[in-house]
Nucleic acid binder design. Structure first.
Length: 877
RNA sequence: GGGCGCGUAGCUCAGUGGGAGAGCACUACGUUGACAUCGUAGGGGUCGCUGGUUCAAUCCCAGCCGCGCCCACCA
């Protein structure tokens, strides 16, 4: 006997363990067409947040559904080493211990990270298990596994040898806290209040003449090597070719003409600091200006500035420069402005453009086939509008800086000879062999200390996890994968890189569909992130409401195109839904409804059973269609509505009298039907709420595990039964509404008169009288007009239904109700008549629309006549 | 500056070229042997504003207002 409520906490983990041990998540169990999703690998040392919960729920829905459809589904799991993020976590731990990675040294530090990974790496995967994620854990991968690391090296070496990876000295985004380069994508431009300082630079040889420049970063003036003006700017034409004298430094700096200078901006003259500004770097190259690096790695002023400033932090230096310029009388003015300042997304400090040697990927070349694959539809984004975002970025893609000055990650397979010659090889031995060949003798080599950007290895994920570069059977069978499910925030970081690498190395797209889901935001609409500390813990929701409730909530809210703001109340609502299903099953159990082998809806006799069998078949096929189109919310909604509003609210109520009936054939048929429909519900529920589906499946006589069942497609519909129950439900609803509106006491019973019923209506009422009378609380059925004064009247499906007052109805309320109904119908009739009398409508609207309006008018008119007469009689009484 | 999206019931949000929806909240009634994590009934919206296209616009188009996000740039 089922308990009164579903207690997920007690069974979820047991069910999950049974599934996993039985091997139900494993790929290759069936011969069907392959279906593959690779998980967006979470950070190995991370923990589950709402974004993961949504992302993995949707993947699990797809995978479980496809398995039921007979496909050989592989959901490939794994985790990401998350270079910067993980290194920072461990560094913070060391800091608390009063030590640092530099104290430990590289090797010990990396060992320490590995042991932290061993310690905490299982957290996130265990949390995914709590959620119910049916990943093939036997194939779990980690981006720093031997195999995946080999793939990384091979990709690096090949790209290098193809000229698509190169070393270059240029400005990078330098993080002065983490002491590493970062990519453009890791920089967060942030709007801030700031100042624009206007400095006067004396013009050389022209006594008392100044040229005014403006800057938001006064300290950089110590590295100025020129001043640019627009070539067409009349104000400055005479100065081009002359020199200014840089205050505080004394350096002669040329005044050059360059189109970069905007006459509309500030004074029209712009100071050029080529070593510390991306635009100035370009101007400097064009105009042959000197590049003077004035900062060290910590963004302190270095030896290239006058002694007074050396060693100062950049912000201290700023204050001093301003004060000193002011003291010289060269500070023209200071404006308050708001401007955008680049911050490191991990470190939260201001990023410096800094001149260093780094490794770059020629992304523009790799992007071309990746753009084409989306253009020609081989890869489709859902929703489609994300393709614009993808194109926009890919078509303007910049060289990708892939080297990081970190210790945790894939060390770059590059070795340097004593003279700086670079040897890029898969192994040190190969590098040494190459060096020996190059130099004619064995030579001492120094390995590049840098590691690769984390996204370099994640970019290989769809094929590296399947065994590449080995030619494995899995790679042949599951690549290209089918769907990638992810948030739009990593389209650039990850999706674009997988496209580029997949097409380059596999010569084939990595996935056919990219499903972009919403972001789960906090209540202010802010993106949730660890560093902001605004994450909501899905585990708490799971503990309170169960994984199924959370999964169902996320599925139901995953409409395309809008972000999700989650409220626990909503999850509670879907927890109630789980309880509802549980109790429907409990009802079936209590009434002996057990699944009958070989049940065939076509052999059903009772219209009520034929009706519900058709309705569940329609619901199943709708869920199927919606999932095929990635409309998770519609799919979940269809399950919800059918289960609650159709099966529980109507069918089970109809079933009650039948189950208690002496007519054993009717009772038996209804028991079998209820059990059959319940099982269909559990099956279509399974992708969304697998735990409750499994528990109920097994406890209501289901065969084996719900996970092993086929998707319950049934081609059954009895249109007559459908119409019949449309009428029955309408009749009951109308009578209930009448009772309520005319203040009929709940316990009072009334007889219903159907004086004008035709054979069809009579038949429908007759066969279903028991159901109708029970749900509408009717004491009897007559085919005559009631005797006596006054009666309430309604019209259902054109049928006049008369309910004698019998002292139970509030006559005044009934008069008002009728008057309201008549008014409403008059309004509707007028609206339709206006439409139908419009010549253009009749001639131009499709025939079926016109016909529909005519039918509506007819119906409304008939009802209006009957209710009008009823009102008249009642008023006379 | 370029792009994307949003504005629908008190709240959170679905949805549609042809009779405005859900959940929660609210009101009234209700423990008939599945479920009070429930049932029945009900109130509540000029579908942001203004134009246009159309026989017909909440939906398509344009402009505007308000909000959010992404990209680029800002001496």
């Amino acid at each position: 006997m089922l308990d009164k409520t579903w207690r997920p906490q007690e069974v979820e983990q047991r069910i999950y363990e049974a599934w996993e041990q039985a091997g139900y998540f494993r790929a290759g169990r069936v011969d069907g067409d392959p279906y593959c999703i690779v998980i967006p690998p979470p950070n190995v040392t991370g923990s589950l947040h709402m974004g993961h919960a949504l992302n993995n729920t949707l993947q699990d829905v797809l995978v479980r559904w496809r398995r039921m459809k007979g496909q050989d589904a592989l959901w490939q799991p794994g985790t990401d080493h998350a270079g910067i993020a993980t290194q920072m976590v461990v560094e913070r731990m060391l800091d608390r211990e009063g030590t640092s990675r530099h104290d430990l040294g590289r090797e010990s530090f990396v060992d320490r990270v590995w042991s932290w990974k061993a310690e905490s790496g299982g957290t996130i995967t265990n949390q995914l298990r709590r959620l119910g994620a049916s990943c093939d854990w036997s194939r779990e991968r980690f981006t720093m596994d031997d195999g995946l690391s080999a793939a990384v090296r091979k990709v690096f070496v090949e790209l290098y040898k193809q000229g698509l990876i190169y070393r270059d000295k240029r400005l990078v985004n330098w993080d002065p806290k983490l002491l590493t380069a970062i990519s453009d994508l890791e920089v967060e431009p942030t709007e801030q209040a700031g100042h624009m300082w206007h400095f006067r630079y004396p013009v050389e040889g022209e006594d008392g003449a100044f040229i005014t420049v403006a800057t938001t970063r006064p300290e950089t003036m110590l590295g100025d090597t020129g001043i640019a003006v627009h070539p067409e700017d009349e104000r400055y034409k005479a100065l081009v070719g002359k020199f200014a004298v840089l205050p505080l430094v004394g350096r002669r700096i040329p005044i050059v003409a360059d189109e970069y200078a905007d006459p509309e901006q500030g004074s029209g003259a712009v100071k050029i600091t080529p070593a510390h500004d991306f635009n100035d770097f370009e101007v400097g190259k064009r105009c042959g200006l000197e590049m003077i690096n004035i900062l060290d790695a910590h963004a302190r002023l270095n030896e290239n500035v006058p002694e007074a400033y050396r060693g100062l932090d950049r912000f201290k230096a700023r204050e001093k420069v301003i004060a000193d310029i002011d003291a010289l009388g060269l500070l023209e003015k200071v404006d308050d402005i708001t401007h955008t300042v680049p911050f490191g997304d991990r470190s939260g400090v201001v990023i410096e453009p800094w001149l260093t040697d780094q490794w770059y990927v020629d992304a523009a070349t790799l992007a071309k086939p990746a753009i084409a694959a989306v253009e020609d539809g081989r890869v489709q984004f859902v929703p489609k509008n994300w393709e614009n975002t993808y194109f926009e970025w890919m078509r303007n893609i910049q060289p990708w800086c892939v080297s990081r000055q970190l210790w945790w990650g894939h060390q770059i397979p590059a070795w340097y000879g004593p003279d700086g010659t670079i040897f890029v090889e898969l192994t040190e031995a190969e590098a040494q062999a190459a060096a020996a060949a190059h130099y004619g003798a064995p030579t001492e080599l120094r390995r590049d200390e840098d590691v690769l950007d984390t996204w370099f290895s994640s970019g290989l994920w769809p094929f590296s996890t399947l065994g590449w570069p080995e030619k494995t059977p899995e790679l042949a069978r599951y690549y290209p994968t089918d769907v990638l499910v992810t948030g739009f925030d990593i389209i650039f970081f990850w999706v674009a890189r997988m496209m580029m690498f997949g097409l380059h190395f596999m010569d084939e797209i990595p996935f056919r569909t990219v499903y972009i889901h919403a972001l789960v935001r906090d209540e202010k609409g802010q993106k949730m992130s660890k560093s902001k500390g605004n994450v909501i813990d899905p585990l708490e929701l799971i503990e309170e409401f169960g994984a199924d409730a959370l999964r169902f909530t996320l599925s139901a809210m995953a409409a395309q195109g809008r972000d999700i703001k989650l409220s626990p109340q909503r999850v509670a609502g879907y927890r109630n839904f789980m309880t509802k299903i549980w109790n429907a099953a409990r009802f079936c159990e209590m009434n002996g409804c057990v699944a009958v082998p070989g049940f065939d809806p076509a052999s059903l006799k009772l219209p009520v059973n034929r009706w519900i069998a058709g309705a569940v078949a329609a619901a199943v096929s709708q869920v199927d269609r919606e999932l095929a189109a990635f409309r998770f919310n519609e799919a979940a909604g269809a399950v919800y509505r059918f289960t609650w509003n159709t099966f529980c609210d109507w069918y089970l109520e109809f079933a009650k009298p039948l189950l208690l009936s002496n007519d054993e054939s009717a009772a038996g048929e209804t028991r079998a039907t209820a059990a059959w429909v319940l099982h269909r519900i559990l099956l279509m529920l399974h992708p969304f709420a697998p735990y409750v589906a499994e528990e109920l499946w097994q406890r209501t006589g289901g065969d084996g595990s719900v996970m092993l069942q086929s998707w319950p497609e049934t081609d059954f519909l009895d249109a007559d039964a459908d119409r019949e129950f449309g009428f029955v439900i309408g009749l009951i609803s109308e009578i209930r509404s009448l009772r309520s509106e005319t203040n009929v006491p709940v316990k009072a019973e009334m007889a219903a008169h159907f004086p004008e019923a035709d054979a069809t209506h009579q038949g429908w009422i007759g066969t279903n009288w028991e159901l109708i009378s029970r749900l509408a609380r009717l004491s009897g059925m007559e085919t005559t007009m009631p005797k006596g004064q006054g009666a309430a009247e309604i019209v259902v499906d054109g049928l006049r239904v008369v309910l004698p007052l019998a002292d139970v109805i509030d006559i005044d309320a009934e008069r008002k109700r009728l008057a309201r109904e008549v008014d409403k119908l008059d309004g509707e009739i007028a609206r339709i008549e206006k439409k139908l009398s419009n010549e253009s409508f009749v001639s131009r609207a499709p025939e079926h629309v016109v016909e529909q309006e005519r039918e509506r008018k007819e119906e409304a008119t008939a009802a209006r006549t009957k209710l009008g007469a009823a009102l008249k009689r009642l008023s006379a009484a």
